[in-house]
Design a protein around this nucleic acid. Structure first.
Length: 637
DNA sequence: CACTTAACTTAGTACCATTAGG
DNA sequence: CCTAATGGTACTAAGTTAAGTG
């Protein structure tokens, strides 16, 4: 999840709190106070947090999705008091159904009424040119001053002021944005399944067309220059651009690429080019490197020009109108063509990810909205008007055959509400988790093998925060597993290990091919069951042969509506954070200490959820630097 | 019911701008 | 002032889950 989302989530969270505060306004003043304080400090630490103690475990900010409720004081006290009722119309929400078309929403008290949705526009239109003006002004002066006699002090002063002004402007803009934020959480929800009443957008933004190679850049086959057809050339360039990457050394990648590349070739080309090893992409690669270099060395002004162009695109395609509010789209750009970069040992790595044409794209919007125009000379695959889904456009991707969607970004109503709902479900789990735990403990003794397996799986999911683990089609994806898809080779049973009894050693690749390695002491009963499950099985066999995610989730939802396997991850991550925060921090701590505890608490969550990050490319070098420094210091001492 | 797939969330990585450190 | 570290954002792959299908 993107950092951006983090910030947005924080905002969403604030929103949640405010709903809560409203609800409790007549009630528990103490609670509210606590909440306020909590929220504040949390936000602060999220913004300020910097420390990243080790490189291997991810820094805290990315865990947002899994721990948020723990940040939330409500979670502790009043899991059942929240008024979020996904299926019902919220009794306390203000918006009436008739207000859906906007006009009557003017009754919704305090918000500045006029042109709510237009305001951001105006705000930006005002502030941007202003900013620009300021900048160029300052720039001019700078240049002038430099030519004059006392350049340095004057220049310094000016930039300082400039920076100050820019900062102030930024803050102001943020506040403004906050002011006109759509307070959807104060409004009434739609009936079941309806996601919007009005949706208008400009359609997706398509990547630029391929620019043919200049004449002086040539591809060579078997030492001889070959002028490739446009399509074949484009694909060749995809490969050439990746030559610095490890991918291009892998056989699977190379084979897949070559196979798909040849499909794009003309008959002649295909006849000629039969061996990837005889292909020389050197000049294409060189050209690419030069381009990257040139981009890096661009002047400030050139960069500014590009930035502004991007801004313009964002303005035009990056937003939509959803129920009279301007909402930011998360990914309004169609994914550009390239070579598929699967994670881990992905059998499809290197395959050509084809260019998406408007003819591949389905548009979804209101019937009565301005239908987006397809690019000149093109048509949409389809225009539909389905308000039970949240996507604005979709297409089918050719490598895996899966659907891709254009959707709103994380701070939009559509995403925020869903997120809220998620935490409400987790809060609900808190009220019945004891019963559910007792239940699966009991089920460990069941006479039915399926029930026992389900119980053990649930035990893992609950205790270790494992993912559900759907089956996957072999050969289509990397070989990764989750709980239900664990195979016998993924665990080792130790009657005793390091002085502990009944230890299960896990070693498998999970989502994104991230290794899960853990040694966990379990109860005798679980241990015995595992032994039983593994009897007469060999490598490659499912540990839980009588269980799959559908069965597990069906069972869970019968225990509590809305309960699925992933809720446990949310729940346990949140509980961990909250409990760690409590344990590690002290109300009297200063900001730095609070930050440290916060980071440590997040660390605990990261460990629980097995969130990991590859060491940065520069790690080796940084480490060497640090070591050198350390050595130096020792010598000095 | 098994199997597929649409729709959505979760997650790691690449890249870029800003800031801190030297 | 330059360079490395850092933090934010964009991107898109890889999951989960429920609904549809034969």
């Amino acid at each position: 999840m993107a950092q951006e989302d983090k910030v947005k989530k924080v905002k969403v969270k604030k929103a949640k709190e405010s709903v809560l505060n409203d609800d409790f306004s007549s009630g528990d003043a103490h609670l509210r106070k606590v909440k306020k304080v909590k929220t504040k400090s949390t936000d602060k630490s999220q913004q300020e947090q910097k420390a990243s103690e080790e490189h291997k475990v991810k820094s805290p900010k990315k865990e947002s999705t899994e721990f948020e409720i723990a940040n939330d004081e409500r979670f502790k006290e009043d899991a059942d008091k929240g008024d979020f009722k996904p299926e019902k119309k919220g009794k306390k929400r203000k918006r009436k159904l008739e207000s859906v078309d906007g006009l009557s929403s003017s009754t919704s008290l305090s918000l500045p009424k006029k042109k709510k949705e237009k305001a951001p526009h105006e705000g930006e239109a005002n502030s941007r040119p202003q900013k620009k003006k300021r900048k160029t002004e300052a720039g001019d002066k700078k240049v002038k001053k430099e030519e004059e006699d006392k350049p340095i002090t004057a220049k310094k002063k000016k930039t300082k002021e400039e920076i100050e002004a820019a900062r102030a402007l930024k803050i102001k803009k943020k506040e403004e944005e906050e002011q006109q934020r759509w307070r959807w959480w104060e409004e009434e929800k739609y009936e079941d399944g309806i996601k919007w009443k009005f949706l208008e957008h400009k359609g997706p933004y398509f990547p630029p067309e391929y620019q043919p190679l200049p004449d002086n850049v040539k591809f060579y086959y078997d030492g001889k220059p070959v002028k490739l057809s446009l399509v074949a050339e484009e694909v060749a360039l995809f490969f050439a651009q990746m030559l610095d990457h490890e991918y291009t050394t892998k056989d699977v990648f190379r084979d897949n690429f070559f196979k798909d590349w040849r499909k794009e070739m003309t008959l002649e080309e295909r006849m000629l080019i039969t061996d990837l090893n005889k292909c020389d992409f050197g000049e294409l690669h060189g050209m690419h490197r030069e381009k990257v270099e040139a981009r890096k060395n661009m002047s400030k002004e050139e960069k500014q020009v590009i930035k502004e162009a991007n801004q313009k695109i964002l303005e035009e395609f990056g937003y939509c109108m959803l129920d009279h509010h301007r909402e930011r789209i998360g990914n309004f750009k169609i994914e550009p063509p390239g070579l598929f970069r699967g994670r881990g040992e992905h059998p499809k790595q290197g395959m050509l990810k084809k260019r998406i044409q408007p003819e591949d794209v389905i548009i979804n919007c209101s019937r009565e909205s301005r239908i987006p125009e397809p690019p000149a000379g093109h048509q949409w695959k389809e225009v539909r008007h389905d308000n039970t889904v949240t996507w604005l456009a979709s297409w089918t991707e050719n490598v895996q055959g899966s659907c891709k969607y254009i959707m709103l970004n994380a701070n939009s109503k559509l995403k925020g509400e869903k997120d809220w709902e998620k935490y409400e479900v987790a809060r609900k789990l808190k009220t019945c988790v004891d019963a559910i735990r007792a239940q699966y403990q009991e089920d460990l003794k069941s006479k039915l093998m399926g029930t026992r397996q389900r119980a053990v799986a649930l035990y893992f999911i609950d205790k270790l925060a494992l993912r559900a683990g759907n089956e996957k089609e072999e050969g289509e994806t990397a070989d990764t597993v989750g709980c239900c898809s664990l195979r016998v080779e993924h665990i080792t049973l130790h009657d005793t290990l390091d002085g502990e009894k009944c230890v299960v050693e896990f070693d498998f690749l999970g989502k994104d091919c991230i290794r899960y390695y853990n040694k966990v002491p379990v109860s005798k009963r679980v241990f015995k069951n595992l032994k039983l499950f593994m009897q007469n099985k060999q490598e490659g066999d499912d540990l839980f042969d009588q269980l799959n995610t559908a069965m597990l989730n069906k069972h869970l939802s019968s225990l509590m509506p809305g309960l699925t396997a992933k809720v446990f991850r949310t729940y346990n991550a949140s509980m961990t954070l909250q409990q760690q925060l409590k344990e590690l921090s002290n109300p009297l701590d200063n900001a730095a200490e609070k930050l440290l505890s916060y980071n440590r608490a997040n660390r605990a969550v990261a460990v629980l959820c097995n969130h990991q990050r590859a060491p940065p490319k520069t790690f080796e070098q940084s480490m060497a630097n640090l070591q050198a420094k350390a050595r130096f210091q020792i010598l000095e001492a």
